[in-house]
């Protein structure tokens, strides 16, 4: 009873300012005056929606893959260093957390623009003859999102790595495993829960990204959240609500799927022992 009371203020807040608006939005998708499934039915053969949905999923997948490949070694470095070095690595990882997404997206515009730092440097080095088109492409979106989302991948992996008993790596080495074999057969499999948590977090966050793809992305590569904003601008509430529901359902489905993976569900559960 007491725990429930302690949580009551937040529960009430969430109910009024989160659950009710979400419910209202969900209802809008079924028609504003009369109940209808027409909006949802139309999605299935709406080329704009299908292309946008596919674009959103593939961007999220690329960003997840990118953060995983770049983030895993950093997580490993973070847990294998001590003292000042470890503190510096942590600060560098967390810096993106402390800067607004807007500021960072503008920074990427400056870097990737036609006359941005990247192009200027490549021109100066004589590697290219005319400026490359980087800004306003899907590549720019993926690069900027990887940068912003890296901490969400690194921290869960580092946490999982830190929980691996260091004597296990020693045991592997003593039993004849080279450093690579020990990593491949002991450290990597034991870090899977952290990898799963990071992958889920980054993928789900990527699905709903708006500012970054809108600012640095290509005009034709719009994402679901951009499409939603567009529809709201045009006061097309029902269509926007439908799209929002699809986005929400996709995220929830992914979370549910990850929970079911053996040995991974634990990563999201609080340790109550």
């Amino acid at each position: 009873m007491i725990p429930l009371l302690l949580a009551a203020p937040l529960l009430l807040y969430m109910l009024v300012f989160y659950a009710l608006p979400v419910l209202a939005m969900l209802l809008k998708g079924f028609g504003e005056q009369h109940w209808t499934l027409a909006h949802y039915a139309s999605l299935a053969d709406d080329p704009v929606f299908l292309k946008t949905f596919w674009n959103t999923l593939s961007t999220a997948a690329l960003v997840t893959l990118g953060t995983l490949l770049l983030g895993y070694p950093v997580a490993l470095a973070l847990v294998r260093t001590r003292g000042v070095t470890a503190a510096i690595i942590l600060v560098v990882i967390l810096l993106p957390f402390w800067t607004s997404v807007l500021v960072r997206s503008y920074a990427w515009m400056v870097l990737m623009g036609r006359h941005g730092l990247i192009n200027e440097a490549l021109l100066a080095a004589g590697l290219i003859e005319r400026p490359l088109r980087i800004l306003n492409t899907s590549l720019a979106t993926v690069i900027a999102m990887i940068h912003i989302l890296l901490p969400y991948m690194i921290l869960p992996i580092a946490n999982a790595l830190r929980q691996i008993d260091p004597s296990l790596a020693r045991a592997a080495s003593g039993l004849g495993a080279s450093p690579f074999q020990a990593f491949r057969q002991v450290v990597l499999p034991l870090s899977v829960p952290g990898v799963a948590a990071g992958v889920l977090l980054v993928f789900v966050l990527s699905l709903g990204f708006y500012i970054t793809p809108a600012m640095v992305g290509g005009p034709r590569d719009i994402t679901l959240s951009m499409l939603i904003a567009q529809q709201v601008d045009q006061l097309n509430w029902a269509y926007a609500a439908c799209l929002s529901t699809v986005l929400l359902a996709t995220s929830l489905a992914l979370i549910a799927a990850f929970q079911r993976l053996p040995g991974i569900g634990n990563a999201f559960r609080m340790n109550t022992r």
Partner: peptide, 12 residues
């Protein structure tokens, strides 16, 4: 061959 204090068996 080495036996550790906490056994160090691979849990997975």
């Amino acid at each position: 061959g080495m036996v550790f204090q906490n056994y160090a068996l691979f849990p997975h």
